[in-house]
Nucleic acid binder design. Structure first.
Lengths: 193, 193
DNA sequence: TTTCGAACATTTTCGTCTTTCATTCTAATT
DNA sequence: AATTAGAATGAAAGACGAAAATGTTCGAAA
């Protein structure tokens, strides 16, 4: 990594921790500069604006999240298990990555073009990932799915819906139990046979 | 109905149509009074505050919604069919009743105590209704459900999640198709058998 | 090339005044 | 007495300009 990239990285880490605590609006460039022990104008040597820094931080967190999910999934073959691990890993790290979580949830940020783009882009990526898992399951003749598009949308929507409620109400252990039940519902449906 | 209740009703209808167009904040008591051809202080003879009027309007709409749903469900016996009709009816009328829809969705209203109460109360009622349908299905040995509580939560969350997306993207016919698929997913799951 | 102090530009904050609006009062009308 | 509404009240929301804070740029220095 080049010298300049190392410095950018350092500034980004500082910015990340401050943004995590105070959010985009309540942190000033000066704070970041002070914390990083540089003059505030130096920041502009590396980033073109405050929004740009925030964007970089969120993208960094997004990259981390994707890596964590990929790492968790890479040596799992069973598509049922894969879905479960995907959901669990997603929930776990999304909560840790405060800035991306905020960018995805906070209503005050939705007017920023890059946040909107981030949301739809990331939605799409997740849909694609879910679709791939489903397709693999179909290919292996484990799943029988009529409309993969709709099914993955429903899975993602449900995930986003229960995520908030569960992560405030339950501990990690209970969440896993709920996810198991949710997956059981998804796999088997509710009809008696 | 007493004279005073008739007048209240009339004022409420006027208020409903104005609130529907402009929302709680952008409509003034004066507007309602003018539209109803009464002096604005007369309104206070019937309602104790602006919030009180809005509350009454929302409750009126809620009552309408419940009636519509009950009417639609009353002579359906099959629990599968019942779920479908519930979902369709709910979607259809919720969109027509602008004020309750706003009260349930609009972030600016969530600070009002009665809106919060309305939301949680109505959530509970819907959960209860869904549970009842599920219980009936279990009783008739059509459904096999491990955790009825979680299942009904998941159904409601999914409903609320797809509702917005679908109602902007699809027409009534396509929505019905999607709901059919959604129900198929719910009933049969995705596992091949 | 990199840094930073100072200058500049833009936004936010604050105080003041004015206007609007919800609510109350009071007297008139039914 | 029940009902209505004009006028009064007070609190909140806007309009506006000055001052302060903050984001961004520039040019000189390390």
């Amino acid at each position: 990594m080049s010298k300049i990239e190392e410095k950018k990285e350092r500034l980004l880490n500082v910015a990340q921790s401050i943004f995590s605590r105070f959010g985009l609006f309540k942190t000033t460039i000066d704070e970041i500069a002070k914390a990083a022990r540089v003059g505030k104008s130096s920041i502009y040597y590396y980033f073109k604006s405050k929004e740009d820094i925030f964007k970089a931080v969120v993208e960094k967190e997004l990259k981390t999240l994707k890596e964590k999910i990929n790492q968790a999934l890479v040596n799992i073959d069973n598509p049922q298990e894969k879905l479960k691990v995907f959901i669990l890993t997603r929930m776990k790290y999304l909560r840790e990555l405060a800035n991306i979580y905020n960018a995805l949830q906070n209503d005050y940020l939705e007017h920023y073009a890059f946040v909107q783009k981030l949301r739809t882009d990331y939605d799409n990526e997740e849909i694609i990932l879910i679709k791939e898992i489903l397709q693999k399951g179909i290919q292996e003749e484990r799943f029988a799915i009529d409309d993969v598009e709709l099914t993955s949308t429903v899975i993602l929507v449900t995930l986003k819906g229960v995520e908030f409620e569960w992560s405030t109400k339950f501990n990690e252990n209970e969440i896993e139990k709920n996810i198991d039940k949710l997956l059981d519902l998804l796999f088997n449906g509710i009809l008696r046979r």
